[in-house]
Design a protein around this nucleic acid. Structure first.
Length: 812
RNA sequence: GCGGAUAUGGCGGAACUGGCAGACGCGCAGGACUUAGAAUCCUGUGGGCAACCGUGCAGGUUCGAUUCCUGUUAUCCGCACCA
């Protein structure tokens, strides 16, 4: 078979017949299969692309043959830093390089032979797409879910832009690994925290990998506790602390504010001013680097001020320390050294008093700090309560006194979406001296990204220097105004692309509401695990926000999610140019064809695990496909003979056939491609075995049926090859418009079943038992067996356990 | 420290609800075909001469454990001073 030629032939035919395009007539049978779209890089498709798209396409083809109307679109996440950085280095405009890369990737993606519906392609950098990204921003703004504020934000000095929390990994920029610093800047945020609770509870109903759900739960970080108000000693002001241990409030011996806390300046006494200022300055400078070192010693400075503990009116010193984070909770913490490790270390270092207020329930537990729950002591009227009761009672009483109350806190912060970069969707907002922030009227969208811009980074947005872009009239008062010079985080673009796909050409609205309510949610979403706390979380948030605005009626965008594993280099390391262990799909595709390549990816690895690349395996797949071709073409050439006999051999082959259908069904649903292929290999061996019979004994008509099923079953795995064989068998219609074989339970009933016979759980013998024998009969047959009789040697039998279809265990 | 996962032959990896561990493939060995090789086809292949022993390690539950429970080790991933 001339692989290259048949690949071209069928790809052209599929395109001509539009067989890959979604047909809205069958929308009631829709099945939305989505692979995460890719960034248009200059390099060719890498193994990761193939591993994501190839097997998933096989799954989609399988579902299509099972009668579903498949929607499997493809597009490009085309805005972003790499193109811009490339431009800075080489002078090639991001738009030019991006378009060129997209064109090349389209070609190679088509050569893969996946059934992508290109008629609904999306490119996020095109005005007909980002117009609606901007529209989305405006809707969030209207709803109060997009807001602008000055805050300490993460700044990457190398990328020269701010980053979302999710893009900072262990204090480093996710992209370029430079150390991220804190800066006070006025930026746009999306209020994802409004949805924290629903984002958390919604996870329970999702068919997602447990690990990914756990990561999101962790990231959202719900913690149930309370807030307690501390008044300053002089009564001039007050502040709240968040705590999960209100039960220990009688043990407070100091209070700590984050160094950035605005109250610090106000309360610091003259005597302490210098020390406090120095500490604040030092924190700002060293924070991010220091944070990387574990177990670092706690430091802090006394402000000189005191506040009052609301439960016992005791005077409590106020300190500042960088172990308190300004951005979590209230930015203030009550110090209870007796019952918290950090507070204990801090108190010991600075000689602060340690008051025990919880006793272990058992009574034998006198090491400090004691962080477990127990019974309250030294807490006046609350003594004797359990910690649990104490928390409730104390917060309840504080609520009554208006000095605190129950409170839930989340670790999740609002999503910082502005970026000081050029290659992104402009933020559709106008700043007017008179009117303030004015959203761009929807009819004026898109706010087009200008082409002629100096994008060398200098810490400011490149767009700010483009006067043509910046200077506009205020849409409200008509006066002088200027545009927002920032662009949107590319994760905004990708947080809704799956909503645009079904209606990608709609020029009047982002989508037709009725249509996407029928097309969504995505039935199977497949992509890398690295997006757990970014793209996958953002998309859920945007979906819920749009639902609340009435633009759609479902709660979750991705019903079922699968992460493919990572294919490593042959040396077991992640593939990288510097290691020189990069496997190029091209070389293999050239030699073996795309079907063989994708099939090896399915066979050689557990899909969600991945693993090191191995050359040997791919040859075995090529060999297997040869075997398939040989048996199919051999049998196709047989003239029908007269044999209609359906005896032992036919039954055996028929069993193998239906067992294979059944197994492949189950395996495909589980993305267990390797075992599905293993079953198909066994089936091919069974066909060879039957074919080895003399011609006058072969039921050729039956065998040809079996061959049809083989080709039908193998086609999703090797689409070009399957299509070719299907036409060799004389079929005119595409194999992908045919029904997948279904199994017949009756064919799976065996006349005779082999049982293992154990004595005291040790395997001793095997016996054949008629398929319809009952337990008594099975037991009798087992006990009659020579080996068993001999091994028992007349010992009395205590008990016999019969497991139908499996084994007999004789306890003696 | 917290959360999640993984550990099975020489190798990649199977094992549905607790029921014959090692499916399928690679590799290896032997055989057939061939002048010979390649290709192909067939057979064998966890260890041990054997009784037996074997799913990271130590226990437990059970007639029976890769599977369930307790503890433990190693590796990987994510988060990490979150009050």
């Amino acid at each position: 078979m001339d692989i290259k030629a048949i690949e071209k032939k069928w790809q052209a035919k599929w395109e001509k017949d539009k067989i890959n395009n979604f047909d809205k007539k069958n929308i009631d049978k829709k099945f939305y299969v989505l692979e995460m779209f890719s960034y248009p890089s200059a390099a060719k498709l890498h193994v990761g692309h193939w591993y994501n798209y190839g097997p998933t396409d096989s799954y989609a083809r399988y579902k299509k043959m099972k009668g579903f109307e498949i929607f499997q679109p493809m597009g490009f996440d085309a805005f972003g830093l790499p193109a811009e950085n490339y431009a800075i280095k080489t002078g090639v405009h991001p738009q030019d390089s991006t378009e060129e890369n997209i064109a090349r990737m389209e070609t190679t993606l088509k050569e893969m032979g996946a059934m992508f519906d290109w008629s609904n392609e999306i490119k996020t950098c095109m005005p007909d797409y980002y117009k609606w990204t901007q529209w989305l921003f405006l809707q969030l703004y209207k709803k109060g879910l997009a807001y602008r504020k000055e805050a300490p934000v993460n700044w990457c000095p190398d990328c020269q832009t701010v980053l979302a929390n999710e893009q900072v990994v262990q204090g480093l920029c996710e992209r370029c690994h430079s150390t991220v610093v804190q800066k006070d800047l006025t930026q746009w945020f999306f209020k994802i925290t409004d949805y924290a609770e629903e984002l958390l509870t919604g996870l329970d109903g999702l068919d997602w990998p447990e690990k990914t759900k756990a990561m999101q739960r962790n990231w959202i970080g719900k913690s149930v506790g309370g807030e307690i108000t501390f008044k300053l000693e002089d009564g001039s002001d007050e502040f709240k602390v968040f705590t999960t241990r209100a039960d220990t409030v009688f043990g407070v011996s100091y209070v700590v504010l984050a160094p950035e806390h605005p109250l610090v300046k106000k309360i610091t006494t003259e005597k302490q001013a210098q020390a406090v200022q120095k500490y604040v300055d030092d924190t700002a400078k060293t924070k991010e680097i220091e944070r990387l070192s574990l177990d670092r010693e706690k430091t802090g400075v006394f402000t000189g001020a005191y506040c009052i503990n609301p439960v016992n009116d005791k005077k409590v010193p106020i300190w500042i320390s960088d172990y308190v984070l300004y951005s979590y909770g209230t930015g203030c913490v009550m110090g209870v050294p007796a019952h918290d490790e950090r507070d204990f270390a801090f108190a010991n270092k600075y000689g602060l008093p340690i008051t025990r207020v919880v006793k272990g329930a058992s009574g034998v537990d006198d090491t400090l700090p004691f962080v477990d729950d127990g019974v309250l002591v030294n807490s006046v009227s609350y003594d004797g309560l359990t910690c649990e009761e104490g928390r409730k009672a104390i917060l309840q009483d504080l609520t009554v006194k208006n000095q605190g109350g129950f409170k839930i806190n989340y670790r999740l912060r609002d999503w910082l979406v502005s970026r000081q970069r050029y290659w992104g969707a402009p933020i559709p907002v106008i700043h007017c001296d008179k009117c303030g922030i004015v959203p761009v009227p929807e009819e004026d969208l898109p706010v087009k990204l200008p082409y002629d811009v100096e994008f060398k980074p200098d810490g400011k947005s490149p767009l700010a220097k483009c006067e043509k872009f910046m200077n506009v009239k205020c849409p409200v008062c008509g006066g002088k105004a200027h545009r927002d010079p920032d662009t949107l985080d590319t994760f905004v673009c990708s947080s809704w692309y799956f909503l645009r796909y079904p209606d990608a050409h709609n020029a009047k609205q982002p989508w037709d509401v009725d249509l996407i309510n029928q097309m969504l949610p995505v039935d199977k979403y497949v992509g890398g695990a690295e997006h757990a706390c970014m793209h996958l979380l953002y998309s859920r948030f945007i979906t819920k926000a749009l639902r609340d605005m009435g633009y759609l009626n479902f709660d979750e965008p991705f019903k079922s999610l699968v992460h493919q594993g990572v294919i490593l280099g042959p040396d077991g390391n992640r593939m990288s140019k510097s290691r020189g262990n990069v496997i190029s799909p091209d070389d293999y595709v050239k030699e073996y064809g795309s079907d063989t390549f994708r099939m090896y990816l399915m066979f050689g690895f557990s899909y969600t695990e991945g693993g090191p690349w191995n050359d040997g395996g791919i040859k075995s797949i090529a060999k297997f496909l040869d075997r398939v071709e040989k048996i199919v073409t051999t049998v196709a050439d047989y003239k029908n003979n007269k044999v209609t006999n359906f005896g032992k051999e036919e039954k055996e082959l028929n069993y193998s056939r239906h067992y294979t259908i059944k197994s492949v069904d189950r395996d495909m649903e589980n993305f267990s491609f390797n075992t599905a292929l293993a079953r198909l290999m066994e089936y091919v061996s069974a066909l060879y075995k039957y074919d080895a019979l003399p011609m006058e004994k072969k039921n050729v008509a039956f065998m040809q049926e079996c061959i049809d099923d083989l080709v039908l079953m193998i086609s999703p795995f090797a689409p070009h090859f399957g299509e070719e064989l299907w036409s060799i068998l004389g079929n005119k219609k595409s194999v992908f418009t045919c029904d997948y074989p279904t199994f017949d339970e009756k064919a799976l009933v065996k006349d005779e079943i082999e049982y293992a016979v154990q004595i005291n759980s040790k395997m001793k013998a095997k016996i054949n038992v008629p398929g319809d024998a009952n337990e008594k009969e099975i037991e009798a047959l087992a006990l009659q067996n020579d080996v068993i009789v001999k091994a028992l040697d007349g010992k009395p039998i205590k008990k016999v356990i019969v497991i139908k279809g499996r084994l007999v265990n004789v306890i003696a």
